[in-house]
């Protein structure tokens, strides 16, 4: 029972990560019709925003170490701690969540520039070419990050308060030893929040309504005198930002390195396709479904019966779904049907 509960939590957690990335991917596909292979790289860029922010906070000066009395010893102390002895250390402790302040404007800007500078020229080109150009773009972004930050993963830690594990077993009346890392719970709720916000934005605002109309029939919306292009640019920037924020929040779970995006990219594409290209609900649902399935497949009991199943289960599910349901779980007719 405990094990199953933990697996459900684990599945939700994995699923949230998949769903969040797949959501941005679908948003871009549904609005702009672009198959964006650079989305994983954008996730990675977000993670490196957190790294940069952390580095900025830690810019240090050498000061005399008062604890050493025998000789003059110097230690590196961040300027923040020198200037603001009260809140400096706290700020540094909270660097990961705070780095969203940096990530939001940076990612919005990157998204805007990419869309205006490159993506918009690819609206009417074949999907294969879109895949290729964004794939090339992803390589460029990766290599730039590698040149700046090096090839090794950069570990970042969550704030001390939530660095440990939560006694989730107690909350639900299960055993004492059922615990789960705090930060993963936070990531789960963060994903839920963002997913909810995106749906609310599209469903309940006039802006979102126009975007949804544009997803259905771009030309007609254009004929009504609405500059749908401008709105889509903003949607692309938003999707970039979501990917970036997901990356920021993921840093305490996985130390970011330059090719972390590629690992997520393939999985998130599988998620999007299983959900149905262009269906936001489908992407989220498929994300959680696959996360759950993978989590249960990696239980030792399951692995004993079917060795190696945890490695292939996602792809297996994807293959079965695509063969049975041509448009994925929630795909609409007319999208990518050719």
């Amino acid at each position: 029972m405990d094990a199953i509960f933990l697996q459900i939590l684990n599945g939700l957690d994995k699923g949230a990560a998949y769903a969040l990335i797949a959501l941005g991917l679908t948003l871009v596909f549904g609005t702009l019709g672009i198959v964006n292979f650079a989305h994983g790289a954008l996730f990675m860029l977000g993670a490196f925003c957190a790294v940069t922010f952390n580095k900025l906070l830690l810019i240090s000066n050498k000061v005399l170490d008062p604890t050493v009395t025998m000789f003059k010893a110097y230690k590196e102390t961040p300027y923040l701690e020198i200037w603001f002895p009260d809140i400096g250390p706290t700020l540094i402790d909270y660097s990961v969540p705070l780095s969203m302040l940096l990530a939001i404007p940076v990612m919005l800007l990157i998204g805007f520039i990419l869309e205006r500078g490159l993506i918009k020229h690819f609206y009417n080109r074949p999907h294969a070419e879109q895949i290729l150009v964004t794939f090339g773009l992803a390589i460029v972004m990766q290599e730039l990050i590698k040149a700046i930050f090096g090839a090794n993963p950069v570990p970042l830690s969550a704030p001390d308060v939530v660095a440990g594990t939560a006694a989730v077993g107690d909350w639900f009346g299960l055993g004492e030893n059922v615990v789960y890392p705090w930060w993963r719970l936070i990531y789960l709720s963060f994903s839920g929040l963002i997913i909810f916000a995106v749906f609310a934005f599209l469903q309940f605002t006039t802006y979102g309504m126009v975007v949804r109309a544009g997803m259905r029939d771009r030309e007609t919306v254009g004929l009504l005198g609405i500059n749908i292009q401008k709105r889509f640019t903003i949607v692309f920037a938003l999707a970039t930002m979501i990917a970036g924020l997901a990356g920021v929040m993921y840093t305490p779970i996985l130390p970011p390195d330059y090719h972390m995006g590629m690992n997520f990219l393939v999985l998130s594409f599988v998620v999007v396709v299983v959900g149905g290209m262009g269906s936001l609900g489908g992407a989220v649902f498929a994300g959680f479904l696959l996360g759950m399935v993978q989590s249960f497949a990696s239980m030792t009991e399951v692995k004993e019966i079917l060795p190696g199943i945890d490695q292939v289960i996602i792809y297996l599910v994807a293959v079965v779904v695509l063969l049975v349901l041509p448009r994925g779980l929630m795909g609409r007719a007319g999208i990518m049907d050719e």
Binding site: L118, L132, V133, F135, G136, L137, I139, V140, Q142
Partner: peptide
């Protein structure tokens, strides 16, 4: 790889 990516784009 950077050259490769740029070339590709």
């Amino acid at each position: 790889h950077l050259t490769l990516g740029l070339l590709f784009v």
